[in-house]
């Protein structure tokens, strides 16, 4: 049994999605989604391809900004503050809400440079400080032991799974309150996937995690709560154990028992 997330140490990272709708041109990607993501713990977003999981995830750090024909309605609040308010600086927001993508995307630079990129953006220049930050972040991403002797090497030489954990370390170096992951293990083999899942299990204690996954077993393994989306609508959001064993909605049941999607 997973530990009770309400006893978690996390204080920040409450994400409140209220009547959130998104359109790309004429197509509605999300319709009036309301969802509360409480600090600490892991929330999984599941649903068939094209149902809007990525769109919802990318709404939380405003990565959709700049997409052609984007319109939205409703509110998303992070610890009470509307992240789409005119006064919100999206680059400051993204330092608080980190993101890891489906395909690992390290910069073509050294391992060390990758991890410290965000910190150097914020003006950290002291080499000792940067190295300490890198070690701390790489340890949190369970990558330190594997790369501690090759910090100066190109990040592109790491294995796929290591690259993905490097991307997690890079996001963690900003010390975010929320970490968004969009199918982070879908390009990895089972062993590398397991390492990522273990990592999320450890991280959930001090950062709010939202993960999109196509893999229902993975959702069941790593998450405390699961939200099921279908055609841009939130069908059901509940404790993971309850959603997978006794869903309230017939459509949820149909999906998790593999009858569509």
């Amino acid at each position: 049994m997973l530990p009770d997330p309400s006893r978690s140490a996390v204080q920040h990272g409450l994400v409140d999605v209220e009547q959130w709708s998104v359109w790309f041109g004429a197509t509605a990607a999300l319709s009036e989604v309301s969802l509360r993501i409480t600090p600490g713990g892991v929330t999984a977003l599941i649903g068939p391809s094209g149902c809007g999981k990525s769109t919802l995830l990318r709404s939380i750090n405003r990565m959709n900004d700049g997409a052609a024909g984007l319109r939205h309605a409703g509110h998303i609040r992070l610890d009470g503050a509307d992240i789409y308010a005119p006064s919100t600086d999206s680059s400051v927001l993204r330092q608080r809400v980190g993101m890891v993508f489906q395909r690992s995307n390290p910069f073509p630079k050294s391992v060390l440079d990758n991890v410290t990129y965000g910190a150097r953006l914020n003006g950290m220049t002291d080499r000792r400080e940067l190295e300490a930050l890198a070690e701390r972040s790489l340890r949190r991403a369970a990558l330190w032991d594997e790369v501690k002797d090759r910090l100066g090497q190109s990040a592109l030489r790491l294995s796929g799974g290591q690259q993905q954990r490097l991307c997690i370390a890079r996001a963690l170096a900003n010390d975010p309150d929320v970490l968004l992951l969009d199918e982070p293990a879908s390009a990895l083999d089972p062993v590398a996937t397991l390492r990522i899942e273990e990592l999320l299990y450890d991280l959930r204690r001090d950062v709010t995690i939202v993960i999109v996954t196509h893999n229902l077993q993975q959702a069941a393994r790593v998450s405390d709560r699961t939200a099921f989306l279908l055609a841009g609508r939130l069908i059901e959001c509940d404790d993971t154990a309850r959603l997978f064993t006794s869903p309230r909605e017939p459509r949820t049941e149909a999906y998790i028992t593999g009858r569509f999607g």
Binding site: N61, M63, G66, S91, V92, R94, Q95, G98, M99, F101, R103, N105, P106, F107, Y117, G118, L121, N122, C167, R170, A171, N174
Partner: peptide
């Protein structure tokens, strides 16, 4: 330049022009 690299920079909190120049 791959979109993934730009997104990586943006997601770390780079402003658009900074990610343009630096990445």
């Amino acid at each position: 330049v791959p979109v993934a690299l730009r997104e990586a920079a943006l997601a770390l909190g780079f402003t658009r022009w900074r990610s343009s120049l630096q990445i």
